[in-house]
């Protein structure tokens, strides 16, 4: 990795906390990003994401790759505390600087990642990692941010994940570039895998790619060569089609938009008189003389020069 692990970890904290200096740091780091291939692992709680990631890290590392991992777990909406438990599955990591694992709490983000997960991946990328793996929180059907943050999205399911009707629903099943049916020793695993394949054949292909389904047991570690091969062929596909370059542009576009949105929001609420106007409007609403809709309209007109 060349750099200092302590410094890398500190940089991550700086970025995650949005501390002063974070934007400057990211600005300096950005030109050094773009080397790492990014893989996202998502799926429902208990599907075996962490076990799969831990095994995948080992396999990639054995193949000569430096691997960074960002594992996201949920923050409490009540106390903002979090229990980050993904490291429990990461027991057999090679004890050297080729592998770096960081846990992140979602901190109020509801898309399955933390707001700053992409930026933390950038830091790992710039630190010389060849592969960066992002593990999402255990998702339901609609926490889909990961698909926009990585190159290859792997959806991990288990034989108990549901019938074909579940597989037909919008959301999670639409973002997988690869599907892993984990816990292959369980009853119904084979049928689940075939069911997903059938469903995928009926769906329109995104990026001209028909997702692969890999049936395996992450715990036993079988069929990982098959998984690695599937990842590699998706990567080649993206490289040949030019979608990989396009993805980088799209990421940059959404970052710029997010930064501008945040800046404008902050400026607006810091404008003199806005909060007083809001309080006045609330009194009026309580007295039955206005509604949130007309109040918002009035405030916007008054403080943004009528661009409401």
């Amino acid at each position: 990795m060349g750099g200092d692990r302590v410094a890398l970890a500190r940089a991550m904290t700086l970025v995650e906390n949005g501390s002063p200096g974070a934007a400057d740091l990211l600005d300096r780091v950005y030109p050094r990003t773009g080397h790492a291939y990014r893989i996202g692992i998502t799926g429902p709680p208990g599907a075996g994401k962490s076990t799969l990631v831990s095994r995948l890290v080992g396999e990639l590392w054995k193949g000569g790759s430096k691997v960074g991992v960002v594992a996201v777990d949920p923050s409490s909406p009540f106390t903002r505390g979090a229990l980050l438990g993904d490291r429990v599955r990461f027991q057999d990591l090679p004890d050297n600087s080729d592998v770096f694992v960081r846990s992140m709490a979602s901190r109020g983000s509801s898309g399955g990642l933390a707001f700053k997960t992409g930026e933390v991946c950038d830091l790992l990328d710039a630190a010389g990692m060849d592969t960066v793996i992002v593990e999402t929180v255990g998702v339901g059907q609609s926490e889909l941010d990961v698909a926009a943050a990585v190159h290859t999205t792997i959806v991990v399911l288990v034989p108990e994940s549901g019938d074909e009707v579940q597989a037909m629903k919008a959301g999670l099943m639409e973002i997988g570039d690869l599907f892993v049916v984990n816990k292959s020793d369980r009853l119904g695993a084979e049928r689940m895998a075939r069911g997903i394949e059938d469903m995928l054949r009926l769906s329109p292909a995104r990026h001209d790619w028909i997702p692969t389904v890999v049936l395996l047991s992450a715990l036993r570690g079988d069929r990982f060569p098959e998984l690695l091969e599937a990842i590699e062929s998706h990567r080649s596909h993206l490289e040949e089609s030019g979608d990989l370059a396009e993805l980088k542009t799209e990421t940059a576009r959404s970052r710029i938009r997010d930064l501008i949105d945040a800046c404008i929001r902050q400026q607006f609420w810091a404008t003199d008189g806005v909060n007083e106007q809001l309080d006045k409007a609330l009194e009026l609403i309580a007295a039955g003389g206005s509604s949130p809709y007309s109040a918002a309209d009035e405030i916007i007109k008054k403080f943004t020069g009528g661009r409401g």
Partner: peptide
């Protein structure tokens, strides 16, 4: 769990 409920981010190593 108590530290989590106190608003801390707890990394549990096992």
């Amino acid at each position: 769990s108590a530290l989590r409920d106190a608003g801390m981010e707890v990394i549990y190593s096992g």
